[in-house]
C-alpha cells in the first residue's frame, strides 16, 4: 500500500511540471503590436434571448431563428418555445448592465476581461429583488458569436430559457 501511495505521489509530482509548461504563455508585448489590435471592450455585447418553454402545441417561435439545441434533450422536453424578449447588453468593464426577466428577477452581465481571438470573459448573475441571489455568479469565457444557455427558472407553466450570445 505504501508502495502504491509513493508511486502515485511520484507520478503526480512528475505530472505537475508539464502542466505549468503547457499553459499558454501570454503574448509578448512586441508581437502584440504586430498583431491586429484586440477589439475594444465596448465593441462586445451580450445578446440575450429570453424564451418561454411550455408544453403548449405552438411549436418554436420563428423569431428565435435557428437554434438546434432546442431539438435536443433536455430542451426537446418542451415542444413550444416563444420568444419573449430579445435584448442587447453592452459588455463593458466595471459597468454591469441589467435586464429584468419576466419573472421579476434581474439578469446582470459584465465584462471581466477581453481575451485574444475575439473572446471575452464575462460574468452573469441572476438576482432576486429584495431577496437572495438566485444565481450569484456565472463566469463564462466565450468567443464572438457563440452562445451559452441558462435555463430552468419556472415561469407560467413552463420555464425560462436564456440564450446568451456574445456579439458585436
Amino acid at each position: 500500500m505504501r508502495y502504491a501511495i509513493s508511486l502515485s505521489l511520484a507520478v503526480s509530482i512528475a505530472a505537475s511540471a508539464p502542466v505549468v509548461r503547457g499553459e499558454p504563455k501570454p503574448p509578448p508585448s512586441a508581437s502584440a503590436k504586430e498583431k491586429p489590435a484586440a477589439p475594444k471592450a465596448d465593441e462586445f455585447a451580450a445578446e440575450v434571448m429570453i424564451l418561454h418553454a411550455t408544453h403548449s402545441k405552438k411549436g418554436v417561435d420563428p423569431r428565435i431563428g435557428d437554434l438546434p439545441e432546442l431539438k435536443d434533450s433536455p430542451f426537446s422536453f418542451y415542444p413550444s418555445y416563444e420568444l419573449l424578449t430579445k435584448a442587447k447588453l453592452p459588455l463593458k468593464k466595471n459597468d454591469p448592465k441589467t435586464l429584468t426577466l419576466p419573472n421579476g428577477r434581474v439578469l446582470q452581465t459584465s465584462l471581466l476581461e477581453t481575451l485574444p481571438e475575439e473572446s471575452v470573459l464575462l460574468s452573469a448573475s441572476i438576482n432576486q429583488p429584495n431577496g437572495k441571489d438566485f444565481l450569484p455568479l456565472l463566469k463564462v469565457k466565450a468567443k464572438l458569436g457563440q452562445a451559452f444557455i441558462v435555463a430552468g427558472q419556472k415561469y407560467k407553466s413552463g420555464i425560462l430559457v436564456l440564450v446568451i450570445r456574445v456579439v458585436r
Binding site: 438566485f134 452562445a147 430552468g152 419556472k154 420555464i159
Partner: peptide, 9 residues
C-alpha cells in the same frame, strides 16, 4: 453549447 440548468425547473 454549454447549458447551466437551474434546479427551479
Amino acid at each position: 453549447t454549454p447549458v447551466v440548468w437551474l434546479s427551479e425547473g
